[in-house]
Structures are given as structure tokens and as C-alpha cells.
Design a protein around this nucleic acid. Structure first.
Length: 882
RNA sequence: GGGCGUUUAGCUCAGCUGGUUAGAGCAUCUCGUUUACACCGAGAGGGUCGGGAGUUCGAAUCCCUCAACGCCCACCA
């Protein structure tokens, strides 16, 4: 124990620097494989290298740190493996922006030149978020840090791609894909976000060549009509049955297209006739394929019109739309325009409208991969917290589509596929083929595309451990224990890790998945740059400290819901840390001259035992709640225990013993104070690592830092009698304070004589110093009964004890009578309620016996107490009139 | 269109498998500078638990329904 006086205030900045350095250099973050110890491993959700720490990162990483710190203290061999994600499209966009400022472009630099710049960018900015995680206190093993595009991981990605291709689970196919003209790349289904937009529904008339009939179609995209290759009606729709198989002429381009029947057409919507543009609509593509319709592209990769009609060539979509509608109007085939609101797909990165487009792309075949991934969650090999997300997961997995993995970007893992320059034959292999193609050609060209960034993230839990080599780390730490991440990437990442891990390693990637919600502003809005309502965690750390930031994120946290965050959470956090600091200051100072290590169990006082029981309960609660990932509840229980039980009650109760030179059980008080605070620091350490370590370093008797000290264990204690007595004493103290405050006794600290009676009177008498300290007692006098106690007294009764405080000049009779009358009414109401219950025959017939007995007991107790109140009222009446 | 979540004190939220007088923090008000802490202490006020109906001896808790807000999935052109 360090007996030097503690500083007035905790200095977060100093402690953060000092302790992070000691922990890191001490190697506490870095496990070594040791089969005598049980492993516990967490893989960080790798933040993007473009990222700057925001509150969401701060939260998810604090959660991981809380878990890993607790497990470390519980004796597990813990690994929290950190790293970053290359984030293909986000990073590429940043680099493009950067070179644009120099007047450069991807085309000018070329692939190699561009990648050189991208790597430079990564070296310069990619470490930012890692440094910020360290400021938060994250106890990651930095010696094992990985990057999704580093050499080892790139090899894994390549191997997995080649294997899946050889197994027939990756294929290249011409399909309709989501295309972002702004990013100039494909997107997977889940990278498209739908937004409602007001638009119009245009009705266009398609005449038969001989004008014998016409069909009206309704569309939200009139410009795509140039690429129509059919009109579809529902086969059961009698209105149009006679036209099926006939042809109509497409206006403007004057192409004849066939009328087909397909059940996907809703007879109720629009006119019941749908124009079919297989090149630019998912339904139309499927229908076109089914009916063998031609695919004609209207829109190109830049989101401009193709050369189908010369005058529209190169035009952007909205301009072309307007002109085409005008032309249709002139041709007299625009029937009507209705206002219409519909959902438009947007790119999740740049928010540009996504164009469905026919393209030849690489896909992962999902059907056979999805099934085992569903099973491991169904049979609870993997548990998801909160549980309800399992349903979401199943729904998605059961309806999963093939995954488009090729991206027309340069920053990422280049697809290991080579094409014969002459015949186009595909070879999928790690290195450029040296052999000649069957056609005799020896020139091979590598696919220009890279892989979806999530393809490499999906392999993260095992690629980071050295798989496919049977490395020591892989054998020991895999499958990992728990994955903690935001619920927004359940599909993007979690689901894909599960099926990838099962297929590649034959094992689950992790046992538990913990999903946290979003952090919103005080009004419940998303934090965004445009609203400028974000809280910068680095500002919070600078102004309040990392511990305060962590506390502010965890307090009241529930995984079930999003969190509303406002700056006053930081003030609450700071107040709490200050309280912790001050309590430690008091304890250290109070016990420094006491040889508490030679304490005697036999000399423990009732309040000591009460404290130990409460402490035990808290150890149990906090551990259990954290095991359930109930971070908010765990912290709340610890908060309440520390602030109320330990500080407000226990410290106050033992002060008389510490201050009194002659007190007989000083050692025991000092011991329990020390032991209690030590335990609190341990339980609190995962939440507030820095301040707890700082205090512990001054309080602890050995050199082991708190970060690797043993997590507290609850003990078997038989102190229920003492516990009950202290609770009773607290009832009286609270009641006395209550009465005094309500009667506005002046001066408020004026002391008074206290008489105690009934069976627990002796115990209360023994607690006299506590009553003096906490209930303004002059002294506590024990009496066998009321005889001899002045009638004019405030009375507080329980079943087992009674307290009388003579009025003297404290209060007048009127006030006490009034108070007793309120008491009387309260008991009468309670009795009436119980009475009612006990008169209810149904209750008596159907409620369990112990419940009925409980109600009877309650009634008897209330009646006893009511009788006392009445007796007091009667006793006081004569005095009043006198 | 389908699914999920939320709705409890002015604000942020606890209240598990139905059973004492529905809790905490913040805010408000009163009193208090007692030798850890005014980033404190002691007290007080404040809720017919979103509406309605139901099951039950008994409902904040279970069932149904409606409403508001939010999220996810689907995409009828």
C-alpha cells in the first residue's frame, strides 16, 4: 500500500499514458499458446483504414475490451486480435479524390501507379484509427495486428477463391447486377439501399403494326423503353388473352416485340401490361430469360444512354427521360402521367442511384454454403445475442441469392483468373499461366477486377491466425470465443464469416455473437456529418478522459435498442470517477496507520458482515450479467452498490470506529474497507481500466497490476442475522432523517435523545455511535418498554423494535399528531386492500397457499403497526389539550 | 406487402418466467460547507406503466387489437 496522500483530483491524461504503456510493455495484451490454460479469443471487427474513430467504434471496442479484460482477470489466456480493413471502394474513392487535387486520375496513373499511391495513402492514414483505439484503452495484442490486404491474408483470399472455383462454387456468369455509375462498379444485393422517391407513372401505348389493336403499358422508367423486347401480361388475364403471341411495335425505335404471358405480372397494377426490358430490370431479366427475349442495353456503365438512338446517345438518364417522354407525346402514344412514389435503389457508399445492368461477373454460389450456416445457429453451436437476431439471420440465409463478388476497382484483392488472349479461355490460378492454351496461344491476361471487400473480411477469424497452415495460434485460439459487432453488419459480415468458416475450416468461426445497436443523438436522430450532431470521442477523451467516455457509453446500455447519447452522460461519468477517486482517498488515509492485515474474524462487527454479504451479492451479479453481455445492467448494479452501500452506508457507518482512538474493532473496519474497495476496483476495471489501475496501484499490497489480478469470487457467508439487523437499523435511521426533514427541525443538526424498546432494542443500543453519526442522536437509551419514556415523543415502530425521540424543543404535538394521522391512513388503506383480497373467495380457492398465508401475515403486521399508531394518537391527545 | 423492435416519472432507462405500497440516474424543490467527495450529503414532489378489449383470484408483466415512432426484408413495372 502506498501511503502517500492522493492528489485532489484524478488526472486522466497522465494515468492513460502511464498505464497503457506499462500494460503494453508488460506484455499483458500478448498471450502465448499454453495448453494448461483455457484460451479466450476475440477478433476485432476490422475498422476501415479510411476511418476516424467515431462513437460507434468507441462503443463496440469498449464492449470487446470489457469482455476481454474480465476474461483475462478470470485466468483465461486471452487474445484480442486487432487489425484494419482495406475497404476497397471507400479507400479507392479517397485516393481518387486525393490525386484529383493534383490534377491526376486513375487513367493517367495507370493501375500500378494508382496502387502505389493507394499504399502510400494507407501508410500515412491507415494507422490513425489504431492509435485512437489505444487511446480508448483497448487491450489488443498489437504484435498480432493484421491488415486484410497484407501478404498473408492476400494469399488466403487467393487460395479460397481458387478452391471455390475448382469446387464449382465460384462461377463467372452473365447476369443482371446492381451497378453504381458513380463508383463505376457492381454492388452486391445488400450494398443497395432503397429509398422512397416521388416520381411518375407514365402510360405508353404500343400499337400493333396493322393498328388492329394496342396495349397500354405503365412504367416508372420510360427511357428504358428503347430496350424493350417484349410486353408481358398475366396468363389468366382475360382482357389480354387474345393478344398473347401477337406483336406490337415499339414507338421511336419501331421494333416489333412479342406479347408474352407470365404470372409475375399483377393484373391489378397499372394497365395489367408490363413492358419488358431484360437489360435493366430484375423481373424483366428473368422473364426475358424464360421466354428467350433479346437483351438490349439502353444504359452504359457511366449511366449514359447507349447508341440505340443516335440523338439520345451519351445523354444522362434524366435528360433522356424528359426528351423521350416529349417524343412519345408528339407521337401521340403517351396516354397519361400519374404521380407515383416508389423505391429507388441507392449505392450504400455514395448514394448514387443504382442501375440494374446486364454484365458478366463473378459469383459465389450460395445454396450449398447457406445450409450448414443455418444449422449451426439452429442447433446453438453459435448463439446470437440478442436472440431475436437469429430469426433475422435465418430469414436472410434461407432466401439468399448468389453473391456478386467482382468489383471494377483496383484497390483490393485482384481476381486470380487469367484469360487466353486469343480464345478467351479462363484459367484460375495463383500465378500467370506459363503453358500454352489449348488454342495454341501463350498470352494470358489477368482479370482486371478485384474482389468485394467483404470477401476477405469473411475469412478474418481464421486468416488472421495463419490458416491454412496448422499454426500454433490457429490450433489454440480457433474457433474464437465471441464476436462483438454492430447489428448493421449481420449480413455483410457475420453471416458470411459463418458460411465461409464452415466451408473452409470445417469449424464455426466463433461460439457467440454479440450485436450492439446504433448510437443516436439526444433526439434519437442518427449522428451524421450533415446534421453535425455527432460527438467526437477524441474530444470526449481529451476533455473527460477515456474512462469517462467508456462509462458514458456503457451506462444504461441495452443491446436490444439503439442508444440515445448526449454530452451530459460524460458529466455523470466524470462525477462517478471523482466519487471513486475520493472514496479511495478516504480509505487510504483512514487505514494507513492501522495494521488491518492482522484482523480477526471474531471481531467483525455487524456492519462489516453486512458489507461482506452485499459485496458477495455484487460479485455474483456483475459476473452473471457480464456473462450474459448485459453491460448496462452489470454497470448499474456495480454503480448502485458502490455509491449507496459502500460509500453512503458502509463508510459512514465505520467512521466512528476509525476516528475513535479506543474503538476495539478498528482493524476489522480497515480490513473490510480495504477489501471492499479492492473488490470494487477489480469489478470496475473492465469498465474503467485507467482510474481503477491507478487507485489499485496505491492500494494493493503486491506488485501485480490490476489488469492481471484475479477476478473476485463470491464466498459462502453465514451472516444473515447481522445482515437483517443492519437493514433494520437502516430503516430506523432513514425514518428518523425522514421525520426530521419533513418537520423541518431547526437547527437541522440539533441532536436528540433516542429511546429504543422491544426485542431488537439491544442491537440498536449497540449501534449508538452509528445513530450519533447518521441520525443526530445525543445518545441511545434502551428501555424494557414504554414506561418512563416521555409521552411527548416522536415514535417510529417496526414489529421488532421501536424508537422514541422526545420532543423537547424539536417539534410540537400538532405536527406529530398530523404525521401519525397520515401513517394511520396509510396503514388503513393497506389493510383495506389486503382485507379485500382475503375476502375474495376465488383468491382463497385458487391462489397458492403460501401466497394466502403471506397476505394474512401482512394483514396481521399492518394491524399491529396500526394499533401502535392509534395508541400513540390516544396518548398524545391529552397532552395536546393540557 | 412481410417481419422485428420501442412506447413506464419532465428526460434517459430498469422492472426475468404474472403476486408486497411500480424503481434508479439526471432534472426540479427543501435543508445542509459534519475532518473522502458541493463532481457532495440528507430529504421531497412527480407515473391510472401508449389506447382499447381479453385471460386470470390477481396484469407494467401473458393473449388479441389499434395507434405512434423506429429498424430490417421484399420490390407491383
Amino acid at each position: 500500500m502506498n501511503t502517500a496522500e492522493m492528489e485532489k483530483y484524478f488526472n486522466p491524461e497522465e494515468a492513460e499514458k502511464k498505464w497503457y504503456d506499462i500494460w503494453d510493455k508488460g506484455g499483458y495484451f500478448t498471450p502465448t499458446v499454453d495448453y494448461s490454460k483455457e484460451p479466450y479469443s476475440i477478433m476485432i471487427p476490422p475498422p476501415n483504414i479510411t476511418g476516424k474513430l467515431h462513437l460507434g467504434h468507441a462503443l463496440v471496442n469498449t464492449l470487446q475490451d470489457v469482455v476481454i479484460r474480465m476474461k483475462r482477470m478470470q485466468g483465461y489466456n486471452t487474445l484480442w486480435l486487432p487489425g484494419t480493413d482495406h475497404a476497397s471502394s471507400a479507400t479507392e474513392a479517397k485516393v481518387v479524390d486525393m490525386i484529383k487535387k493534383e490534377g491526376l486520375s486513375k487513367d493517367i496513373l495507370g493501375r500500378d501507379g494508382f496502387l502505389k499511391r493507394a499504399w502510400e495513402w494507407k501508410e500515412e492514414y491507415g494507422g490513425t484509427i489504431i492509435r485512437q483505439l489505444k487511446k480508448l484503452g483497448c487491450s489488443c495484442d498489437w504484435t498480432r495486428e493484421r491488415f486484410t490486404l497484407d501478404e498473408g491474408l492476400s494469399k488466403v483470399v487467393q487460395k479460397v477463391f481458387i478452391d471455390l472455383y475448382n469446387e464449382g462454387l465460384i462461377y463467372k456468369g452473365e447476369r443482371l447486377v446492381n451497378w453504381c455509375p458513380c463508383c463505376h462498379s457492381t454492388l452486391s444485393d445488400i450494398e443497395v439501399e432503397y429509398e422512397e422517391e416521388p416520381s411518375s407513372l407514365w402510360y405508353i401505348r404500343y400499337w400493333a403494326k396493322d393498328k388492329s389493336f394496342y396495349l397500354d403499358v405503365a412504367t416508372t422508367r420510360p427511357e428504358t423503353m428503347l430496350g424493350d423486347t417484349g410486353v408481358a401480361v398475366n396468363p389468366s388475364d382475360e382482357r389480354f388473352a387474345k393478344y398473347i403471341g401477337k406483336k406490337v411495335v415499339l414507338p421511336i425505335v419501331n421494333r416489333e416485340i412479342e406479347v408474352i404471358a407470365d404470372p409475375f405480372v399483377e393484373t391489378e397494377f397499372g394497365t395489367g401490361c408490363v413492358k419488358i426490358t431484360p437489360a435493366h430490370d430484375f423481373n424483366d431479366f428473368n422473364a426475358g430469360k424464360k421466354h428467350g427475349l433479346e437483351i438490349i442495353r439502353v444504359i452504359d456503365e457511366d449511366g449514359k444512354m447507349t447508341d440505340l438512338v443516335e440523338k439520345y446517345k451519351g445523354m444522362d438518364i434524366l435528360t433522356a427521360r424528359k426528351l423521350i417522354v416529349d417524343e412519345l407525346q408528339e407521337l401521340g402514344v403517351l396516354v397519361k402521367i400519374e404521380p407515383y412514389t416508389h423505391n429507388v435503389g441507392k449505392c450504400y457508399r455514395c448514394h448514387h442511384t443504382v442501375e440494374p445492368m446486364v454484365s458478366k461477373q463473378w459469383f459465389v454460389k450460395m445454396e450449398s454454403l447457406a445450409k450448414p450456416a443455418i444449422d449451426v445457429v439452429k442447433n446453438k453451436e453459435i448463439t446470437i445475442y440478442p436472440e431475436r437476431y437469429e430469426k433475422t439471420y435465418f430469414h436472410w440465409m434461407e432466401n439468399i441469392q448468389d453473391w456478386c463478388i467482382s468489383r471494377q476497382l483496383w484497390w483490393g484483392h485482384r481476381i486470380p483468373a487469367y484469360y487466353c488472349k486469343k480464345c478467351g479461355k479462363i484459367e484460375v490460378c495463383a500465378e500467370k499461366p506459363t503453358k500454352a492454351c489449348a488454342c495454341g496461344c501463350t498470352e494470358w491476361v489477368q482479370d482486371e477486377d478485384t474482389l468485394d471487400t467483404w470477401f476477405s473480411s469473411a475469412l478474418w477469424p481464421f486468416s488472421t491466425l495463419g490458416w491454412p497452415e496448422e499454426t500454433e495460434d490457429y490450433k489454440y485460439f480457433y474457433p474464437t470465443s465471441t464476436l462483438i459487432t454492430g447489428n448493421d453488419i449481420l449480413f455483410f459480415w457475420v453471416a458470411r464469416m459463418i458460411f465461409s468458416a464452415l466451408h473452409q475450416t470445417g469449424k464455426i468461426p466463433f461460439h457467440k455473437v454479440v450485436l450492439n445497436g446504433l448510437i443516436r443523438d439526444a433526439q434519437g436522430r442518427k449522428m451524421s456529418k450533415s446534421l453535425n450532431n455527432g460527438v467526437d470521442p477524441l474530444d470526449a477523451i481529451r476533455d473527460y478522459g477515456a474512462d469517462a467516455l467508456r462509462f458514458s457509453l456503457l451506462q444504461g446500455l441495452s443491446l436490444e435498442t439503439d442508444t440515445r447519447y448526449s454530452m451530459d452522460r460524460l458529466d455523470i461519468a466524470k462525477a462517478f470517477i471523482n466519487k471513486l477517486w475520493n472514496s479511495a482517498k478516504f480509505v487510504l488515509n483512514g487505514i494507513k496507520d492501522i495494521d488491518y492485515k492482522t484482523w480477526n474474524k471474531a471481531d467483525l462487527q455487524p456492519e462489516d458482515k453486512w458489507m461482506l454479504v452485499k459485496l458477495n451479492k455484487t460479485i455474483k451479479d456483475v459476473t452473471e450479467e457480464l456473462d450474459k453481455f448485459e453491460f448496462g445492467v452489470a454497470l448499474q448494479k456495480l454503480y448502485d452498490f458502490f455509491w449507496n452501500d459502500y460509500c453512503s452506508w458502509y463508510i459512514e457507518m465505520v467512521k466512528p470506529r476509525l476516528y475513535d482512538e479506543n474503538a476495539s474493532s478498528k482493524k476489522e473496519a480497515a480490513y473490510v474497507l480495504h477489501y471492499g474497495l479492492t473488490t470494487i476496483l477489480k469489478l470496475m476495471h473492465p469498465f474503467l481500466p485507467f482510474v481503477t489501475e491507478e487507485i489499485y496501484s496505491r492500494l494493493s499490497e503486491d506488485d501485480t497490476p490490476l489488469i492481471v489480478s484475479a477476478w473476485p469470487k463470491a464466498k459462502d457467508l453465514e451472516y444473515s442475522a447481522e445482515y437483517e439487523n443492519i437493514e433494520l437499523m437502516q430503516y430506523f435511521i432513514t425514518s428518523i432523517r425522514n421525520v426530521r426533514a419533513n418537520m423541518n427541525i431547526q437547527p437541522s443538526r440539533k441532536t436528540a435523545l433516542i429511546f429504543v424498546t422491544k426485542e431488537k432494542g439491544a442491537f440498536l443500543k449497540a449501534a449508538e455511535p452509528i445513530f450519533q453519526k447518521l441520525a443526530f442522536a445525543k445518545s441511545v437509551e434502551i428501555r424494557a418498554d414504554k414506561t418512563g419514556i416521555p409521552v411527548n415523543a416522536i415514535s417510529i415502530e417496526s414489529l421488532v423494535a421501536a424508537v422514541y425521540i422526545p420532543f423537547e424543543d424539536l417539534v410540537d404535538i400538532e405536527a406529530e399528531i398530523k404525521r401519525l394521522e397520515v401513517e394511520k391512513e396509510k396503514y388503513e388503506a393497506l389493510i383495506a386492500r389486503v382485507d379485500n383480497q382475503l375476502k375474495n373467495e376465488n383468491f382463497l380457492a385458487k391462489a397458492p397457499a403460501d401466497k394466502i398465508e403471506g397476505e394474512r401475515q401482512k394483514k396481521a403486521n399492518y394491524e399491529t403497526l396500526l394499533a401502535s399508531v392509534n395508541e400513540r394518537l390516544i396518548a398524545l391527545q391529552p397532552s395536546k389539550s393540557a
